[in-house]
């Protein structure tokens, strides 16, 4: 799945809104001429280790984004921690793509211990299949948890679980966090959950 993560969404978007397909298309293939060197070395290390299991979505100043499919996300995260000295996750965001029938989960990973990485954020993105009629916790929208790799994702993954219905397998505490206990509607940050009157 991950090899085509960026492209289908970029192609699918302009069907909804009209022409600007060009700017979206030139994002996934960064031109190797002007890439920042230090950031490029980070992405090179990951590509060297995992080959075509990972896809480098972009290399920008201070930001490197890696797309990976859900079978490999745990291994890649372990390498990022042990091999590259990243030590904490700042943010875990779900993004819903109904047109791809997938939900993307994006980890923003940073480092306090390695001062050369203080500016850097490594963006690790993976995708889970999306159910049109979800039963959170009991359907195919599942991903492996990164809680055993990065302790700091604990509450963030609980939030993604309740807001998108992505069940994290192996998470020790898969409960609701912000939503009320008796919430019985769609996970609210999915695109098909509409605000009334909008």
């Amino acid at each position: 799945m991950s090899t085509e993560t960026e492209n289908p969404s970029a192609d699918a978007k302009p069907e909804i809104k009209t022409p600007p397909a060009k700017p979206a298309a030139n994002k996934p293939e960064p031109t190797p001429v002007e890439l920042p060197a230090f950031e490029k070395s980070i992405s090179d290390k990951i590509v060297e280790k995992f080959g075509d299991k990972v896809e480098v979505a972009f290399v920008k100043e201070d930001r490197v984004r890696i797309n990976v499919d859900k079978e490999n996300v745990h291994d890649v995260a372990e390498f990022i921690r042990d091999g590259l000295n990243y030590d904490h996750v700042e943010s875990v965001s779900g993004v819903d793509y109904p047109q791809d029938n997938e939900i993307e989960v994006v980890y923003h990973i940073g480092s306090y211990t390695d001062s050369s990485l203080a500016r850097q954020i490594l963006v690790l993105a993976t995708r889970a299949p999306r159910e049109t009629n979800p039963i959170p916790g009991n359907d195919a929208t599942r991903l492996p948890t990164l809680r055993d790799v990065f302790y700091s994702v604990e509450f963030h993954e609980r939030e993604v679980f309740e807001m998108f219905g992505v069940f994290f397998e192996g998470h020790p505490d898969n409960r609701r966090l912000l939503l009320p206990e008796d919430w019985a509607d769609l996970p609210p940050l999915r695109k098909d959950f509409a605000i009334k009157g909008r």
Binding site: A10, K13, K22, K27, E90, S91, V106, I121, V123
Partner: peptide, 27 residues
């Protein structure tokens, strides 16, 4: 915005680092 893009910016707020992740799709 130009197209399908994402950006993650962070600042030091009164309580610590505050990040904002925006995904845009040319709307």
């Amino acid at each position: 915005t130009k197209g399908l893009e994402s950006v993650y910016k962070r600042v030091e707020s009164g309580r610590g680092s505050l990040g904002c992740y925006i995904v845009s799709d040319a709307k």
